[in-house]
Simulated scan of single mutants.
Amino acid sequence: MDFGLSGEQEMLVETTRAFVEKELYPFEAEVERTRAVRPELVRQVIDRALEAGLYAANMPEGLGGGGLDTVSMCLVDRELGRAAYALHYLVARPSNILQACTGAQRERYLFPAIRGEKIDCLAMTEPDAGSDVRSMKCTARQDGTDWVIDGEKHFISHADLADFVILFAATGEEETPRGRKKRITTFLVDKGTPGFEVLPGYVSVSHRGYHNCRLRFENCRLPAEQVLGEPHKGFEVANDWLGATRLQVAATCLGRSHRALELATDWAAQRRQFGQQIGKFQGVSFKLADMKLLLQQAELLTLWAAWRHDQRMMRDEDAAMAKLAASEALGRIADEALQIFGGMGLMEDLPLERIWRDARVERIWEGTSEIQRHIISRAMLRPLGA
């Protein structure tokens, strides 16, 4: 493996970082204060991202996307991750699941999402079905050629801005070697469909301005052409296209870790106590060294997993290790950076207290740290029959 970046990748990193500093950083304080992103600002960020060639960069060129490989996308996401999440997610990566669209679905959902005309969101999590997806209670039953959806979802990110939902619902049961399990089907549901309601979610301390929502389905009728993929094959759709999402989380964690470490390093070099810069005290300098080590380890794991994905060699445990390492490194780096700043680190005048708050959710969403450890250990033990 070549650990160096190509000229194109270096230019991509520079372009993305310049975009973040010019188009996103200036609005972070506003989003923190108002806990929202103005509709006109949403449109502005999307339009500027389209102009910069950063929008839908994960989608194949043949579909109108940027056609970046996984390593390059991780580099982009790392730079975007430096900014407040409510802003940088607008530089969208339409869900790769949409590549499963066929026929009229492509014109109605896939291509508008790539062009920035429509925003999608994924609806899987429920109040009683978080990590245990198979226990979902939101159901879809067939009625003639239609499907009728009933149930609720929660913690559905940016559903308030989305034009349509990629919904996972239980559609019966099947026998497996490990007992009966629910079959899952994936649907495309337009906002405004009768029987479908988007409700406000919960107020989170992490990622202000980036809202989670609750979805309610009551006798929501969908025609057969709203099925994404094949009926009862929802997990196959998810497994085919969602493998890289944990790498995206890992990469954005790297971006915030870089920013926190840079802030702490600059502070340690400038702040003076007892007649010298605080960075000259081992209590501070050793923290910086440990933070750098954690970040470098997480970055190598993430780019390694991304490289394996590009080579069609990535295993579930590769993405799990990247997500686990990067999210936990961010938590420690943000905490140590704040410690180096002392009391000033907790003040809203600096971005560090936001990075510290935002870091906490990364060990929970897209699979908790415990789930990642389960994936890794299962891969180790299964070949031995354990």
Rank of each mutant, 00 (worst) to 15 (best):
V237I: 14
L263F: 14
W241M: 02
D240R: 14
T245Q: 14
E236P: 04
W241R: 06
P231R: 10
V237A: 09
D240A: 12
C253H: 08
A260I: 10
E262T: 06
R246F: 07
H232K: 15
W241T: 14
N239T: 15
L228A: 09
A251I: 01
Q226E: 05
V227I: 15
G229K: 06
H232N: 13
H258P: 00
G255A: 04
W241E: 01
W241S: 09
A251K: 03
S257E: 01
L228V: 09
R246I: 11
H232Y: 10
A238C: 08
L261G: 00
P231S: 04
A238F: 15
A260T: 05
L242P: 00
T245M: 14
E262S: 04
K233Q: 15
L261F: 14
A260K: 11
G243C: 05
L247V: 03
A250F: 01
Q226D: 09
R256E: 05
V227L: 13
L242F: 14
V249N: 07
K233W: 10
E262R: 07
T252L: 04
T252N: 10
A244C: 04
C253K: 15
G229T: 09
L242Q: 08
V227F: 11
R259F: 05
L263G: 02
R256H: 04
A260C: 13
T252H: 03
T252F: 08
K233I: 01
Q226M: 09
V249W: 00
E262V: 06
E236C: 07
A244L: 12
G255S: 03
Q226F: 02
S257A: 15
L263R: 12
F235A: 02
V249Q: 02
G255W: 00
N239A: 15
A250M: 06
C253T: 07
S257N: 03
A238M: 15
L242H: 08
S257V: 01
L263P: 07
V237E: 10
G255F: 05
V237L: 14
L242V: 08
C253D: 02
T245Y: 12
G229S: 09
L261V: 09
